[in-house]
Amino acid sequence: MKGLFKSKPRTPVDVVRQTRENLVHLDLNSGSRGGDAKREEKMAELSKNIRELKSILYGNGESEPVTEACVQLTQEFFRENTLRLLIIHLPKLNLETRKDATQVVANLQRQQVSSKIVASEYLESNKDLLDILISGYENMDIALHYGAMLRECIRHQSIARYVLESEHMKKFFDYIQLPNFDIASDASATFKELLTRHKATVAEFLTNNYDWFFEEFNSRLLSSTNYITKRQAIKLLGDMLLDRSNVAVMMRYVSSKDNLMILMNLLRDSSKNIQIEAFHVFKLFAANKNKPAEVVNILVTNRSKLLRFFAGFKIDKEDEQFEADKEQVIKEISAL
């Protein structure tokens, strides 16, 4: 009998509405234990709806996504608090539905409605959602899902700025060193995204927070005993300092003897990969035209060792830029 009423296909707006109804139902009944069968039925419905949202946004095996359908879906999704409900109730969903939900949220961050990114506007007035997403790194079961959503949200410059300026930035130094590799790497990827994506915002952040940030960065990440933490941190430091928009920060960094000492120790790390990344930062100290006396002192004291080190410093594949940089560094140090 039911089949008779199914003749009208559901519109994207219908699917979003039903998803929201399912989520509200979940919200109201989260405490109650009774009616497990009913609850499971609702859950199955929700899973089906979220999968439907995904296939509208991404297309399915046979068909590409339709722009008009995506626009309708996006509008309806952000018209009310569907995103909030979805994020809050994510831990209650099963694994497959969590993955679908993550992909839906990720896709929605890029959808435009009359050339405006609706998601960005929504998040700006719901910034507490970012607090929830970031705290996900403390829960193994949802960390990877929240982490993936978070990285999509910080594509919006205003949202990235919010996170950079929040107290959460300090927490990342812990998250990056979590023992669980997938979660630590996820946090590390988010951290990197925050510090490299929006150039002007990053430059402003680094300038205003120079002291505590590099203090933490040097002592906790570059001096970490964890191989991965060290390797990712030195790579990120290179990416940050070599970015043109961060010139002022770079000049400040390479004028410090303490920073130089850390980098020189990384040059003789047992890992070749770390050595190479450290070289890309060390060369900035050597190339600095206005080296402070304390930096010159250290370089002069260790001149012969440094020259001997660079004479034998090779990378596996040919790299003209690397060789040229090395020549330059050798020249600078010899001339001191």
Partner: peptide, 25 residues
């Protein structure tokens, strides 16, 4: 990382799933 993440998020009786992963040196 992408491989580890994939293995952590896949769940099917015929797909090998990682219990966990961590670094040792």
């Amino acid at each position: 990382w992408r491989e580890a993440k994939a293995m952590a998020l896949l769940s099917h009786r015929n797909v090998l799933r990682a219990h966990c992963s961590f670094t040792v040196g």
